[in-house]
Design a binder for these strands. Structure first.
Lengths: 195, 195
DNA sequence: ACAGACTATCTATCAAGATAGTTATTGGCA
DNA sequence: TGCCAATAACTATCTTGATAGATAGTCTGT
């Protein structure tokens, strides 16, 4: 159900087409929520049917046309309600840690390789998130600027701070994964040496 | 697909029935992988059909019977192969951080409540994981002792170390979430005060 | 003898997510 | 003018996961 709210979040800034939304899922919100277009288009239609969005067919060139979705009052209310309701925590499901618990089954080389891949993956994530923080701090984030333009000036600092807070949390998470995997390599090495 | 490998991991220690396995998902492995029995029973049957497990009907009381599954050589090989193959990282999907990015939409009280719930949830997790570490360190973990009994003595330290390493990673993750939410509360308070 | 908790298994349905396509138009550039 | 990348949208299938129940036998204690 979070896809629905991720879409409402984006459309709360400005109306967008399904295509534009699916692009967003590859950049901005994409860092906290990802979805392919094959999930987005049907969900948008469902949301329109539920009255959360209003779709408008707009022409695109001589023959082409596209549907731009605008959030309705009901949509805004639904989003606000979701924001005010507690989050349900679903059970842990963490393949990386599941595998780590049985690392003695892997060859030392493969185990090391997986730890390095873990480090590489989270290093990339951390880099992208740090870049986001930089954009937010320097006022060069397009989405944020659009959002701020539609909001009273006194809320600007608060809105920006929450975004930075979010990405800082993600950076910290990535850092923990990196540190953990580094310890993993040390551990693997220590047992590989004294064979 | 990880459910399959979580089951193989458990059955690599000793044969178990579907019921026993589903109990395990509520305790030991349950902390890194959870699944309801309605997923476990069909998966076990599929795995038997695929030759990874061998099921044996064993009587239980006068009329009752249960199926105990034992890992086959093909099952062991499949598990080892999974352990040696790199993990695919799926895209981020993190409702807590998604919500945090739009925290200005929530009432300060609700926002604070969610941060407190986040802290409470991860504090519970951290406690359980720390307890697991304690069990592993003091040799009081039943599953680990069974596994060690079936393994050459020289591997004992390594096997135990990997388990502890896993849970230490989980504890660190939980700690980061707790610290993050604490910062969140500070942030919310700072904006709520100067209204 | 019966209640009640626990063991054991199975089914059905639904939502969510992953994967891999198909179709068609636009707009820039060589 | 023709090619190609980008825009725009849709469809189908499959797997996974979530939720709620149905069924039946066992074991312990009163």
């Amino acid at each position: 159900m979070s896809l629905r709210y991720a879409l409402l979040a984006l459309l709360s800034v400005e109306p967008m087409t399904g295509y534009e939304l699916s692009k967003q899922f590859g950049s901005s919100v994409g860092y906290v929520w990802h979805a392919p277009d094959s999930q987005i288009y049907p969900e948008l239609r469902r949301m329109e049917k539920d009255g959360l969005l209003a779709g408008e067919e707009i022409p695109w060139g001589p023959r082409g046309r596209k549907t731009q979705y605008r959030i309705t009052d009901a949509g805004t209310a639904a989003f606000r309600e979701w924001m005010n309701s507690p989050l349900e925590y679903s059970r842990e499901r963490d393949p990386a840690h599941l595998k780590a618990a049985y690392l003695e089954w892997a060859d030392p080389a493969a185990a090391r390789g997986q730890m390095l891949a873990h480090i590489a993956y989270y290093t990339t994530c951390r880099g992208q998130w740090e870049e986001k923080i930089h954009e937010l701090q320097t006022g060069t984030n397009a989405m944020l600027n659009k959002r701020l333009a539609a909001m009273p000036k006194r809320d600007h600092r608060r809105i920006t701070a929450y975004k930075i807070f979010t990405y800082e949390g993600l950076v910290a998470k990535a850092q923990v994964e990196i540190d953990w995997a580094r310890n993993g390599i040390k551990l693997i090495d220590s047992f590989d040496d004294d064979t």
